[in-house]
């Protein structure tokens, strides 16, 4: 109906899709259903567990109530601040590393395909590995603690920040850069006065967006020993202190929501 796509605007051909496209779609539906059936039949779920799941869940939630708020100032607060430090420092570190790689990946900055592709490979590698895996790797290298967490967050974010930054640079209008080239500007001056003013809004937006994501991600790192509130959560769960768990979850929820509000507010001001 209203969903107009790239089909020709008029003419006798009323069909939205070619027969081949239709066939491809039906094939996709079929494969999707088959994949689902295969998954359901093969996944190792004990049916009794499934039927009992809601009871177990309700049971856990009752044991969490009421949250042990007295636990917050003694332990949770410090861990929460550590989590924020990990997220912030990790984001800063990732930007420091991602900006040069992003510039290398941008075709209008470095006109060598080999360099572009190499930089893109680094960015893809960074994104393909989950932050938890990065955390496991860096815990193995630097030992447990916030250092491993911060570097894990940084490495995980390089791909995201670098890719979006490179795209923003490639979208920059070439006109001003051409004018500054004509004025005899050196390449650092071109970056500083030709490109930077153009990519600046995108840059801040990317940095804030990634920081918001990293606040969420850094809350998990402690589960594998990389510092932050995840560690406290893990301990509380291992000792079945459910009211404390509730406090921790509440703290994470609050911080994540506050971070999101903060980011939206700053972005509104920047743009």
């Amino acid at each position: 109906m209203s969903v107009t796509t790239n089909s020709p605007p008029s003419g006798p051909n009323w069909q939205r899709f070619t027969p081949a496209q239709r066939l491809a779609r039906y094939a996709v539906y079929l494969v999707a259903v088959m994949a689902l059936v295969w998954s359901v039949r093969n996944v190792s779920i004990i049916p009794e567990f499934l039927y009992d799941a809601h009871n177990q869940m309700a049971d856990l939630l009752t044991r969490m109530w009421p949250p042990d708020l007295s636990y917050y100032p003694t332990t949770v607060h410090g861990a929460l601040i550590e989590t924020l430090h990990i997220a912030t420092l990790g984001t800063i570190l990732s930007i420091v590393m991602a900006v040069p790689i992003g510039l290398m990946a941008a075709r209008n900055i470095v006109p060598f395909r080999v360099v572009n592709e190499f930089a893109k490979l680094i960015l893809v590698a960074s994104r393909s590995v989950n932050s938890l895996v990065w955390a496991l790797l860096f815990v193995a290298i630097f030992g447990p603690g916030a250092l491993a967490g911060t570097i894990a967050i940084a490495f995980r974010s390089i791909g995201f920040v670098g890719k979006l930054f490179a795209e923003a640079v490639e979208e920059a209008s070439p006109g001003p850069v051409e004018a500054l080239t004509a004025a005899g500007a050196s390449w650092p001056a071109l970056l500083l006065k030709g490109y930077w003013p153009q990519v600046q809004p995108a840059f801040w937006s990317i940095a804030l967006f990634r920081w918001d994501i990293n606040v969420r991600e850094s809350a998990v790192l402690g589960l594998v020993g990389a510092g932050g509130i995840g560690l406290v959560l893990d301990t509380a769960m291992n000792f079945f202190q459910w009211t404390r768990v509730a406090t921790i979850l509440l703290a994470i929820f609050t911080v994540v929501v506050l971070a999101e509000i903060l980011v939206t507010q700053i972005r509104k001001r920047l743009i």
Binding site: G175, P176, A179, K193, Q198, P201
Partner: peptide
Amino acid sequence: FQEYNLVERL
């Protein structure tokens, strides 16, 4: 230049 080519945000 035809399109002035100023750095718009400066």
